[in-house]
Computed example of a mutant assay.
Amino acid sequence: MRRVVALSVLLPSLAWAQSTKPQFVPPNGLPLDTPLGTARNADGSGVVTFATMQAGIAGAVTQSQLAGALTAYLTSEAAAATYATSTYVDAAVQTETSRAKEAEQANASDIAGIKSDYITSSMLDSTLGGYVTGAALNSALSTYLTQAQATSTYLTQSQATSTYLPLAGGSLSGALNTQQITISRGDIVLTGGGSVLLFSGGRTGAYFSTNSFGDLVINTAVGGGGGIRMIPTTFASLPSSPPAGTEHYCSDCYIGSGAKGVNVLYNGTAWTGVSGAAISH
């Protein structure tokens, strides 16, 4: 009963401790190890005593300390006045979402309108598939001359037609002036009584033609000039076995006791005079 009375006297003094930790003084001069309550330790001492109560009061937080620790925090009223609630945030998000969807729909309509004026990349690829690229065209034309190169290098068609023979067929009127004519595996065909005329020094020399029998006719006196002359050669320079009928003028050959310098003919076996007479050299 005494302990209950002492506790009832102590409690009002504990309630008074607000801003400073109270100096606990047990009532009626009771010692600090006086047990409070019925709980006991193994040695029989009280679990709760004035001493343990004093220790708890000493470690307690005062009201001013609590207020200082909470100064960095907002009260629920201050937080509500300063920050948005989850409901408000949800509503704002919903509003902005709706606005974004409306803008997206408007943009989609504008984009669709713009796309209608343009072609897709696949359509462009399909259209360009029938054309030649610049690289392919340059490669194909690499073996050809440009118009400027051809003009500066070769004759035009009108120049070639008026100056040179055509490549195939056609006819040539007027004189053909050239330094050399080379015919490879072909014939020179003269029709209509034409002739092959040889000129030298402005004078008409020998010319060749054919008669009605198809014989080759060598004319040697056209215009008062022209003749047939074979370049002289020595017997040692005559070919050893030319085709039969080959004729030369041998400068050191002679027949019998005649003078040197006779026409010789190869009869298929030996060189003789054109009459078949034996020759010496």
Score class of each variant (00 low, 15 high):
9 V>N: 14
12 P>Q: 03
19 S>Q: 07
23 Q>E: 08
26 P>I: 01
31 P>K: 04
35 P>E: 02
37 G>L: 07
41 N>A: 10
43 D>G: 08
45 S>G: 09
45 S>M: 03
47 V>A: 08
55 A>T: 12
57 I>S: 00
58 A>Y: 04
58 A>H: 03
63 Q>S: 08
65 Q>D: 04
78 A>W: 05
80 A>P: 01
83 Y>S: 13
83 Y>P: 01
84 A>T: 14
85 T>M: 08
88 Y>W: 15
92 A>P: 00
95 T>W: 06
95 T>M: 11
97 T>R: 08
100 A>E: 12
102 E>H: 07
102 E>T: 07
103 A>R: 10
106 A>H: 08
111 I>E: 03
118 Y>V: 09
119 I>K: 08
123 M>V: 10
126 S>C: 08
127 T>W: 07
138 N>A: 15
139 S>L: 12
144 Y>Q: 13
146 T>I: 07
151 T>I: 10
155 L>Q: 06
160 A>M: 07
164 Y>T: 11
169 G>S: 09
170 G>S: 09
174 G>Y: 00
181 I>E: 03
184 S>C: 10
194 G>W: 06
194 G>L: 04
196 V>K: 05
202 G>S: 05
202 G>H: 04
203 R>A: 12
208 F>G: 01
210 T>Y: 07
221 A>F: 09
227 G>V: 02
231 I>H: 12
232 P>M: 08
233 T>V: 15
234 T>N: 11
238 L>K: 00
240 S>W: 01
241 S>D: 07
270 A>R: 07
274 V>N: 05
277 A>T: 09
